[in-house]
Design a binder for these strands. Sequence first.
DNA 1: CTATCATTTAGACGAACGTCGAACCACTCG
DNA 2: CGAGTGGTTCGACGTTCGTCTAAATGATAG
Lengths: 117, 117
Amino acid sequence: MALPLVSRGKDAQAGACCAPIARQPLSEGDATELAVLLKAVADPVRLRLLSMIGSHAGGEACVCDLTDAFELTAPTISHHLKVLRTAGLIDGERRGTWVYYWIVPETVNRLGALFAR
Amino acid sequence: MALPLVSRGKDAQAGACCAPIARQPLSEGDATELAVLLKAVADPVRLRLLSMIGSHAGGEACVCDLTDAFELTAPTISHHLKVLRTAGLIDGERRGTWVYYWIVPETVNRLGALFAR
DNA sequence: CTATCATTTAGACGAACGTCGAACCACTCG
DNA sequence: CGAGTGGTTCGACGTTCGTCTAAATGATAG
């Protein structure tokens, strides 16, 4: 994707003032790609899931740990996890009885790199 | 909102393990509030609008500058601007014939503070 | 005051989304 | 093997979203 780091040379006043998104107009392609990522995260349930997984001891959480925190059915939680996974924000695998998920930091960082100054 | 900064001290590149969102589980209230913000930004057109406004000379752009970059009707652009404005990501005012918009950095920073490490 | 340009509002429509219940798959344990 | 538990897939339903056209509002120039 190569988010353009335009700030070559001096990022004097206008340079370091603001988030990357406010430094140079986003290309149509980058915008489309980033919107997919943001859509995956633009839901209260998925935001909490991501946060719960990321902050869980050992860096991963099994679905059984996640389901109880919501008043939602298992299929719904499973659906949200799939959305996060498809977006590349989390990954997971089955280990015996349970399925574990963990965060993919690279993908999360791409969001941070967009808005952080 | 007071996102907890759990790890103070040295956060050199590898120092800070992860984004705030992965440090502590998001509360339901915070998640809902942040999701509103993220939803506003989770669209390619709005992402580009935000970027174009933020990177425009003088820190503001009039609608006339924005419309031409898209193959969308004026009402559609106006709709997207309203979404961004309602979310508090931009603000604007009419000056004579044209309407100008600018970024609200505080709101953008809240997104940066979520994902940046 | 009317003509005209810039922008927003209103209403409509198809597509995408979040949720559920039911059925299905994967694994473990008698 | 067969029963039971944890998760996912499937199909359906109501809601929200992005877009458009048509019409309304604001502001400037004749």
